[in-house]
Structures are given as structure tokens and as C-alpha cells.
């Protein structure tokens, strides 16, 4: 489903070159839920952003469902349609109502009819438990509700893969649960997911595989079991000691 091979991404920052993603390779098969953990600045976001073409990379290749992102001839917008992304800061469109947030891209990108888009949108809002908020503007919703809308908005495009970049980090603690519940439900339905998170409980419960990243590299990889019982690398142990 996703095949990342030797990807390198560097940033030119104040005289020195930052290797944000440093020779990362990984493979994710259909229906798998992969959780990426790691300290701040280790390149987790950049890695995710490379996977849906928000960030270009210097070398290596990323294939998503057979589409090669490194190939100039690939239609990048087609890749993005297949890959949904949920951001830490929700990034809902503030000038549109909840329903419009879900319908807009369907109509613009997929050329769906208004009624068809609304039907799909309402079904998804039902699923995330926010059907009663369809006419509200995002600024009137709580953080947890906004994030659930953002998830529904990504799902409206029928993505084959969902990427989550710290979806609960900007939320008040009491709202984390409702968002994680939606994500668990999604995982149970067999969605292929890559989740960057600090929620170890979620990783333990839902992840098929956990990756630990540090300084742009994947340091350790394994089942949640492996991570929480006997991590091998020193850096992993240090990090887990800090967050658990």
C-alpha cells in the first residue's frame, strides 16, 4: 500500500542543513495501523507530509497504491485524493459551515453533485457524532468537535490511507477521548492509518506496529508489545521513560 524507500528530506536552516528525514524506509500494507512516536523535532511531521506530497524530498521514493510520488509525471493531486490528512491544528475552513467544510472538496475535486456530497457529508457527520452541528461555523465548536469534523472531512474524499499528525496534541485532556474513539472505530473498519501521536494508550490498543523516530531516522520498530515490555535501543528507553 505505502512503500517508502531511502527518503531524505533536508531543510536549509540558518547556515546549517537540517536532515529532517534521514534515509527512512518503511512499508505499510493495506489495513495496517502504524503509530510513529518520537521526540519533538525528530522528523515525524515531515515524514508524514512527504507521504502526501505537502513536502518534496531530495532523494528516495514513495509509492502510494502504485503511484510514485518521486516521479514528476505523477499527478500529485491524484495522490492527495487517495491520502487523507488530519492536522494537529484541525485547519477547518473558518468561513464555511461544518457541512460546507465536508462538501466543498467533494464538489470541487470529485465533481460530485451538491445533493450527493451533502448525503455523504451527513452520513460521515453521523458517524463522528456531530450530525446536529452541520450548520455551525467551526469557531463555535470545541476542539474535540473540530477535530472530529476534520476527520470526517478527510474521509469524505474516500481516501485509501489516512495520515494523522498529532491529532490530539492541541486538545484539552477531556476531549482527547472522543477523537481517539473515532480513530479506533476507523481502525476497526480496516482503514490503513499512519498516526503520529504521544498517546501511548492508543498505540498499545490499536497499533499493529510502532515506529520510534529520532533525528530523522527510524531507530526502532516493532509491535506495541515489544515497545512496552522490552525496548532494545537506549534512545527508545529514554524516550519511553519520559512519556510513560
Amino acid at each position: 500500500m505505502i512503500k517508502v524507500e531511502n527518503v531524505v528530506k533536508t531543510f536549509q536552516g540558518r547556515g546549517q542543513i537540517v536532515r529532517a528525514v534521514d534515509d527512512v524506509s518503511l512499508e505499510i500494507s493495506k489495513g495496517e495501523v502504524v503509530v510513529i512516536i518520537g521526540p519533538s523535532g525528530s522528523g515525524k511531521s515531515t515524514c508524514l507530509r512527504c507521504m502526501n506530497g505537502l513536502e518534496s524530498f531530495e532523494s528516495g521514493s514513495i509509492c502510494i497504491d502504485g503511484l510514485n510520488l518521486a516521479d514528476r509525471r505523477t499527478d500529485i493531486n491524484r495522490v492527495r485524493r487517495e491520502v487523507g490528512m488530519v492536522f494537529q491544528q484541525f485547519n477547518l475552513f473558518p468561513h464555511k459551515t461544518v457541512l460546507e467544510n465536508l462538501c466543498l472538496a467533494q464538489q470541487v475535486v470529485h465533481g460530485r453533485k451538491r445533493s450527493e456530497a451533502q448525503q455523504k457529508a451527513r452520513a460521515l457527520l453521523n458517524k463522528v457524532g456531530l450530525a446536529f452541528k452541520e450548520d455551525e461555523y467551526p469557531s463555535r465548536l470545541s476542539g474535540g468537535q473540530q477535530q472530529r469534523v476534520a476527520i470526517a472531512r478527510a474521509l469524505a474524499m474516500n481516501p485509501k490511507v489516512m495520515l494523522f499528525d498529532e491529532p490530539t496534541s492541541a486538545l484539552d485532556p477531556e476531549m482527547v477521548g472522543e477523537v481517539l474513539d473515532v480513530m479506533k472505530q476507523l481502525a476497526a473498519e480496516g482503514m490503513t492509518m499512519v498516526v503520529v501521536t504521544h498517546e501511548m494508550g492508543f498505540a498499545r490498543e490499536v497499533a499493529d506496529r510502532v515506529l520510534f523516530m529520532d533525528q530523522g531516522k527510524i531507530v526502532e520498530e516493532g509491535t506495541p508489545e515489544h515497545f512496552f515490555t522490552n525496548p532494545q535501543e537506549d534512545r527508545t528507553k529514554l524516550f519511553l521513560n519520559q512519556v510513560l
Binding site: 502526501n52 505537502l54 493531486n77 491524484r78 492527495r80 485524493r81 491520502v83 487523507g84 490528512m85 492536522f87 485547519n91 477547518l92 475552513f93 472538496a105 470541487v108 475535486v109 476534520a150 472531512r153 478527510a154 474524499m157
Partner: peptide, 9 residues
């Protein structure tokens, strides 16, 4: 970024 990630040009 959100708009682009939804596939908009």
C-alpha cells in the same frame, strides 16, 4: 495545506 491535502489544486 488542508485544501491541498484534500486534493484541490
Amino acid at each position: 495545506e488542508a485544501a491541498r491535502s484534500l486534493g484541490m489544486t
